[in-house]
Amino acid sequence: MSIRIAIAQCAPALGAVKRNLDMHQKWIARARAAGARLVIFPELSLTGYYLKDLAADVACAADDPQLAPIAEASRDIDISAGFVERSADAKLHIAQGHWSGGKLVHVHRKVYLPTYGIFDDGRYFGPGDRFETYTWAGGTTGVAICEDLWHVSTPYLYAAAGATIVLAPSASPGRGVAEGGDLGTAESCRLMDRFYASYLTLYVVYVNRVGHEDGIAFWGGSEIVAPDGTVAARAPEFDEDLLLGEIDPELVARERARNPLLRDEREDIVLRNIAGRLGLPFDRRD
């Protein structure tokens, strides 16, 4: 049976956590009213993206009372939202939490922190060090925060670990306005979503924000791409939108029966190659 999810393509305020919490409540209420089982917010949805030195000012532990309203709101709808996590040893991370049944059930810390071009994540944040799946009503899921998704190994590792859904909360700045096509960033992202969905036979849920920060426009265009490569739902570019779509486990099963790439994947060869190159021991267990 398919499950309805909602993407909150919103425009968080930069550094104003209280205002963003109120904004989240409104979107959560709308998603709940629309019958969604999960509402997903973009990267750093509770804080804004280009925080610079504000990162330390808005950071909190994953169990901080500041986030209690989100936990509370998750009693009857799952919520995936972004915040700045201060770890126990006081490192700052770009984090995406998943709240369900009133509790935080999973946190992913962004692993790949882009520090080039218009990005400076690595100056203000520490990297996460793992890609762990978790399971909720919609299925086994992995979270790839923005740049995480651009690294091919990220969705690969999730698929290998059994994920049927990759949630990709992003804060993607729109750029590239050459004639004769879509926004440059939009084209790249759509190619990526469709490729991963088709070849890893899973759902890619791309959640981008809108609005401006210091003159940079986030382009929206959130989408749900199904394991057969079709775009199940897509939000408009640059405008706020509550995008609804269905996740259908049957479709995953059908696609994997038709196209058993994952079943035939040779992780042992992948691992042996990498282990060999890094000089790590590798024992094959038959």
Binding site: G176, G180, G181, D182, L183
Partner: peptide
């Protein structure tokens, strides 16, 4: 019409070819 993505790879610096400067005015 070729897409911007497909076209990126074939942009060559050529003093006689101003076409790389063309933009999507509606989007801008």
């Amino acid at each position: 019409m070729t897409s911007a993505l497909a076209r990126t790879g074939v942009i060559r610096p050529d003093p006689k070819d101003p076409s790389p400067l063309r933009i999507d005015e509606v989007l801008v």
